[in-house]
């Protein structure tokens, strides 16, 4: 299939991009890497009037050190993420999850920011951003604002980015201390989206788990933090038994969907198993 016709705008600055979005009429789509947008346009599930291509906007691509955080530009491609030394040093969980996204060709085009703004519940990066307490820098015509990950994912395919706004960069705090991480992904075939996945970040101190953060992929319309697991782990002994007991609580309060790949109760079961495995690995057990 061929997409329906649209107006194409290719700004070179964030300001031009915001203007183009404002000028674009009722139905504007922002094109980042296009790896989700173009297929749905081909299937004519989306037929925007205007497409604003961020591909030539300078300054949205790349990773920089910003003291206590690294800052990942929204248009940084997945393959850039995978080869970036700052990410490898300060946020290896981002790279680990990114390596599981789609395939090499898609990772060459698809972008870090695009995947987050798309906010597909089965996407891998939102749960990671949530687990890492990332912050989202959003630009609008009236200026910039920063939204914490906990408030960024609003609903199914919906984020805090309002109409007329753009995600420009994501701040990922550097982790200090003895942190371990793991992204545990479960899917049926290589290309498939996660049925469920778990992002775990664990800090150990003196044989105990000092702090754990657990993000859940595809356990509801938005990525979730498994707060009960985190609470149960905080201060717990770093033993497989303690982790297993805490992981049992991973699905509490979740309302995952039922679809071709899994019914809700199976997803809830998977969440407990994968949480145990992710936390165990992250804790180095």
């Amino acid at each position: 299939m061929i997409p329906a016709p649209f107006q194409y705008v290719r700004p070179t600055t964030v300001e031009e991009a915001l203007q183009a979005i404002a000028d674009g009429g009722e139905d504007v789509k922002v094109l980042a890497g296009g790896q989700s947008l173009i297929p749905v346009m081909r299937l004519r599930l989306a037929a925007p009037e205007t497409v604003v291509d961020l591909g030539r906007v300078a300054g949205l691509r790349g990773v920089r050190d910003d003291g206590d955080a690294i800052v990942i530009g929204a248009m940084t491609t997945h393959s850039d993420v995978l080869s970036d030394p700052l990410i490898a040093e300060h946020a290896p969980l981002v790279a680990e999850a990114t390596a599981t996204v789609a395939d090499r060709q898609v990772r060459h085009r698809g972008t870090f920011g695009g995947a987050l703004v798309h906010a597909d519940p089965a996407g891998d990066l939102p749960a990671v951003a949530l687990a890492l307490d990332a912050e989202f820098v959003i630009a609008g015509q009236s200026g910039r604002r920063t939204v914490p990950a906990a408030e960024f994912f609003v609903d199914y395919l919906t984020t805090a980015v309002e109409e007329g706004e753009l995600l420009v960069e994501v701040r990922v705090p550097k982790l200090t201390g003895s942190w371990g991480m793991r992204y545990e992904k479960f899917n049926r075939v290589a290309q498939a989206w996660s049925i469920v996945a778990v992002a775990a970040v664990v800090r150990r101190e003196n044989g105990r788990i000092a702090e754990a953060r657990v993000g859940l992929t595809n356990m509801g319309p938005t990525p979730l933090r498994a707060r009960q697991v985190e609470e149960a782990l905080a201060g717990a002994e770093a033993t497989p038994e303690a982790v297993a007991a805490a992981a049992q609580r991973a699905a509490e309060g979740t309302e995952p969907s039922s679809d071709l790949n899994a019914q809700a109760d199976y997803r809830q079961h998977l969440a407990t198993v994968l949480t145990r495995r992710a936390v165990t690995a992250a804790a180095g057990l």
Binding site: V40, L45, V106, A192, W193
Partner: peptide, 9 residues
Amino acid sequence: APSTSGGAL
């Protein structure tokens, strides 16, 4: 836009 190929916009 539902999930298409692998979670990358």
